[in-house]
């Protein structure tokens, strides 16, 4: 699985961080999304898919 984030789209809802804290974080100065792991391990795949579904800004892309 590959994850890419489009930071300017992020509205800092915090949803991805709460769902997959191993994969996503928020930048300290403005709360924008930070990708911690571009190729998360299988144990994280379900939460990454869920985070992609709920992100209000469609700010990240998940491929295979």
């Amino acid at each position: 699985m590959q994850v890419a984030v489009d930071v300017p789209k992020c509205v800092a809802s915090g949803q991805c961080v709460q769902i997959a804290p191993e994969v996503f974080d928020q930048r300290d100065d403005d709360g924008m999304v930070v990708l911690l792991d571009e190729a998360p391990p299988p144990a994280e795949h379900d939460s990454v898919h869920e985070a992609a579904l709920v992100c209000p800004a469609a700010a990240f892309l998940v491929t295979a």
Binding site: A12, S13, G14, Q15, E50, V54, P56, A57
Partner: peptide, 23 residues
């Protein structure tokens, strides 16, 4: 399992800013 897909906080650029606090 998919409760979190709700739109109780709205969606898009105005989605609730206070949602982490409310939760």
């Amino acid at each position: 399992a998919n409760a979190r897909q709700h739109v109780a906080f709205g969606y898009g650029i105005h989605q609730c800013l206070g949602q982490p606090l409310a939760r």
